[in-house]
Amino acid sequence: MLRIEGLTKTYRTGDAALRGVDLTVGKGQVVGLIGPSGAGKSTLIRCVNRLVEPTAGKIYVGDTEITGLGRRELRRVRRRIGMIFQEYALVERLTVMENVLSGRLGYVGFWASWLRRFPEADIAKAFAVLDRVGLMDQVDKRADALSGGQRQRVGIARALMQDPDLLLVDEPTASLDPKTSRQVMRLLLEVCAERGFATIVNIHDVGLAQLFLPRIVGLRAGAIVYDGPAAGLTAEVLTRIYGEEDWTRTAARDDDEDDTAAALAIEAERRIVAGAA
């Protein structure tokens, strides 16, 4: 579904954010992208819908090569790429419904969208999507009146409205508490499975990544240094991605008595997920 070949991005300041990244994500596949801050995770997913212009390399979404597209074709491709953001990036002063309907902007004309006259099918779809993410009773609230978890659900609903083939998710849980993070990740994984999106999830939290994401790609200084199953994230691999640190608490399955309760909980849940898979 998504094929990236030799993707390179050098910013005008001279910083090389990406150095020849190759990555393929198939239909229905969910990839967790981990790596230290500044490794190029955000740049990588923003190159896919060209919010950031790549310097070199090719990106195929389906059969379309997108790096050479003109503005009109680019907008057509962006309709097929849903995006979910770190700080939700909802338009704060608009209602939940308007935020969700904005996922259809690529499909309706300017005047229809400006006058909020969306096709009936779109409105029905918006209600269905809001029902799916559990926000049926918040439809007319302003986005800035919602809690963090609710906002991220609106963000997910907005992406679903696009009927995308590809989903780009940028740090979906970075501003959420641990419990809400898990709920949001679970919802995200469920909808990806239901609709067969090819998905890339940027994520800081290695524990959460191991828990929910079957395939992990590790990025360091703009290059891929690991691409494999979540179970393969050993202390040695984490050192390769992030650098030297004591990784035994998160990576190795040690039963040290001084292990924190949280680490144990993550550990236990991972085993259950691994067992179910």
Binding site: R75, M83, F85, V91, G106, F110, S113, G155
Partner: peptide
């Protein structure tokens, strides 16, 4: 950025974001 990423046109970005 979020509104632009949905495939919105320039005027739609102005109207919605």
């Amino acid at each position: 950025e979020a509104v632009r990423a949905t495939g919105a046109s320039w005027w739609q970005v102005v109207a919605y974001a």
